[in-house]
């Protein structure tokens, strides 16, 4: 599974990245986490609020830090 965190470095973006990598480690999910900080790259996903969470090239959330249970659900669906 391919996970991307979109964010230019705001505090929420770092929080989301930490959260996702924690969940991935705890649940031993096989996934690559990629952080995208380049603004033009981020714009290609069509979002205007960061952080964005992309699972298997699909934007699942933007502008918010989703709840843990929600992230776990997305990760399980994506696997």
């Amino acid at each position: 599974m391919n996970i991307k965190i979109l964010g230019t470095g705001c505090s929420k973006c770092t929080m989301l990245e930490k959260k996702v990598s924690e969940i991935v480690t705890n649940k031993s999910i096989e996934a690559s986490i990629e952080k995208i900080t380049d603004l033009q790259e981020i714009m290609k996903f069509g979002i205007m609020m960061t952080p964005g969470l992309v699972i298997n090239d699909k934007v699942v959330s933007y502008g918010i830090i989703p709840k843990d249970s929600q992230i776990i659900q997305w990760l399980e669906e994506g696997n």
Binding site: C10, L39, I42, M43, G46, I47, M48, M49, T50
Partner: peptide, 9 residues
């Protein structure tokens, strides 16, 4: 903090 992505978008 989202002024720029918003402007671009």
């Amino acid at each position: 903090c989202s002024a720029i992505p918003l402007f671009l978008g």
